[in-house]
Every structure is written in C-alpha cells, then in structure tokens.
Computed example of a mutant assay.
Amino acid sequence: MRFLVYGAGAVGGAAGALLHASGHETVLLARGAHLAAIQRQGLTLATPEDTRTLPIAAYADPAEVPHPVDAVLLAMKGNDTEAALRALAATVDPATPVACLQNGVANERAALRLFPNVYAICVAFPATHLEPGVVVAHSAPTPGILDLGRYPYGVDEVAQRIAGALRDAGFAASPRPDVMRWKYRKLLVNLSNAVDAVCVRDEATAELGELLRAEAVAVLDAAGIDHASAEEDRLRRGDTIRRQDVPGTPRGGSSSWQSLARGTGSIEADYLNGEIVLLGRLHGVATPYNEHARRVANLFARQGRPPASLPAAQWRTLLTS
C-alpha cells in the first residue's frame, strides 16, 4: 500500500519508518527542525535491535505530496487534528481512507465530518521522539499492537489491507469491528499521561492515576459508553510488548511527557482528560480530578516547565486551593 503518515513524531515516525522498511511506499508530513533533518539526511529509527537511517520522502504540507495515496494515517496529537484535517481535505481525494493512529476518541468523529471512510486504530506502541530526525521504538521483536476497525463500527476490505500492511511492518494488528471499545480502554490508560508529564514519579503519582481512572469509569458508565475491561486489555497485550531501553535513548515517559521535554508549548490533555470532563458535563457527573489534570498539564506546557517536576502532594494541594 501507499501511505501518507501525517505527523511523523514518535508513533507516526516510527510506524512510517517500519512501513517503509517493509516495502510499503510511505510519505511523511512533519514540521520544523524534524522535517528539515529528515529532508537533509533521512529518518533515523532506533530500536532495541538496531539503528538505521531510512531515505523517506517528507513534506510540510499535504499539498506538496506529488502523488495520490491509498490511505492516510493521522498521527499528530489530538489538539492538532482539526487543522490537519482541513489541510488534508483541501488536497486529497475525499474518498481516501483516513485512519486515526492517535490516542483519544475525538479524532475519528472530527475526521468523519470531512471524510466518509474513517478508521480507528488502538495504539499500544511505546515510542519516543525527542531529537530532530530521530524516532525510537522501544519494544522488540514486536514493536507494538495496532488493532483497527472502521469507524464507528465494522471491518471492511480496507481495514483488512491496512492491518495486513501493519503486520508486514512487524506489528500485531487485528481488525476489530468494536475497535472503539478498545480505544475507550486506551483512553482510560492515557488519563495518567498528564500526571506522568508534570509529577515527580513515586507511589503517590500512581495513586493519582487510579483516581483519574475511577472518576472516568463513572463518567463512561453514566454516558452508556462501553469499554474493554482491564482484563481484556491484559489478555490482548500478553507479553507482546516488551519495553526495552535503546542505547542512548532511554524511554523517558508518555507522549505528554515528551511534549514537555521538547518544549512544544502544547499538550494533548484537552483530548484525554478533557474528553472525560466534557462527558461528565454532558451527563451530570463531577470530574474534579480530570479537570485539574487538564489544567495543570496545560499550564506546564504554556509556561515551558520541565516534565516530572511537581511533587504529587503539591498537585493535590493545587486541587484544593
């Protein structure tokens, strides 16, 4: 297949590199110093097994891509999705399949406003992007699990083809008609990203993550939204993902932690914790922990504060102040 990976950060860049290496023609969309480095010297992919630099075509805008593609993989943070979709809709055939290789559950609905053929991918793929021109995949021999299905429900030939391409690239990838159940489970897991990003890591930090998830489960239950259970998730993952340090690039933290580490000035908390806050407001369930996590993560991003620098006790004090 011919892929356009829109957002060549940790997940998008590493997935694009692995698709390219497996023989699927892949084009990347990136920005800033990262784009300049890829255009100058290729994209470097580091894994626990090896490090290689791949000559992948990269552009700043979808209008620059010189040929049609079979599918677009959206891989930017949720806070950048709307702008990316507008740029994409101005240039590609509207029938082009668009697959959301993203955390959160709002991207697919946004894509469906502009594109009729939308696919959801549940991402379990430990990857890091901190240096321009370099992405790191931390699991081997299987880099991650990328199950997918048509949005809002179902599996079709395109989903089967994308899953096959992802398997060619080394991923565990199963077509799932109920993929959004799994994306809501992943959302519950990702709620602790905001705490991981801002708080010093200790037992108290882990407790905050549990509070965020308990609050969110109450919200999903009130909204009538089904989600895969923690046990289902544990069984699906099994021992497929084996996180390992890559020489010179230890796994620093979540995607939100990486946003603070790179000083991007933005973070995806509005589309993770903020999704729970929105649903809570719609269904009359209070969400003080997730609202606080959202606010503090955004504050750290705006102020350029370093990741993992706020004691968990101080996080709680700010909640009650």
Rank of each mutant, 00 (worst) to 15 (best):
G274M: 15
N190P: 00
D168W: 09
R109H: 11
V27W: 06
A124E: 11
V105T: 11
L146W: 09
D168K: 13
A63N: 08
G248S: 08
H283M: 10
R176A: 13
D233V: 05
L4N: 10
C100A: 05
P288D: 15
P247L: 08
V5K: 09
D221M: 03
G263P: 00
L272T: 15
Y151P: 00
Q41L: 04
Y119A: 04
A165K: 13
A10G: 11
L54D: 14
C100T: 08
T317G: 06
N107R: 09
T317C: 00
G209V: 07
P152Y: 14
L73S: 05
E49S: 02
G238P: 00
R295M: 03
R234P: 00
R167Q: 13
E157N: 11
P306F: 11
A21F: 02
A163M: 03
G265V: 06
A204D: 10
T53R: 07
P250W: 14
Y153A: 12
V246G: 08
T91P: 00
G9H: 01
A83Q: 14
P306Y: 14
T317H: 09
P143A: 15
E215D: 14
N298F: 03
D50Y: 04
G12S: 10
H67W: 07
H292C: 02
A37W: 05
L278C: 06
A71F: 01
G23V: 04
A10W: 02
K186C: 01
R52C: 03
A197G: 00
G253N: 11
R262M: 07
N298M: 07
W315N: 09
P288W: 14
V98Q: 06
A30P: 00
M1D: 06
P306K: 15
V135D: 05
A99W: 02
P311R: 15
G238F: 08
R86D: 07
V98E: 02
P152I: 03
Y184S: 03
P97V: 10
A90D: 05
E203N: 12
L212P: 01
E64Q: 12
D61H: 09
A165E: 14
T240V: 04
C122W: 08
G23L: 04
V5W: 03
V123M: 12
P152E: 15
G252R: 15
G238M: 08
G12Q: 04
G133D: 08
L73R: 10
H138Y: 09
V27P: 01
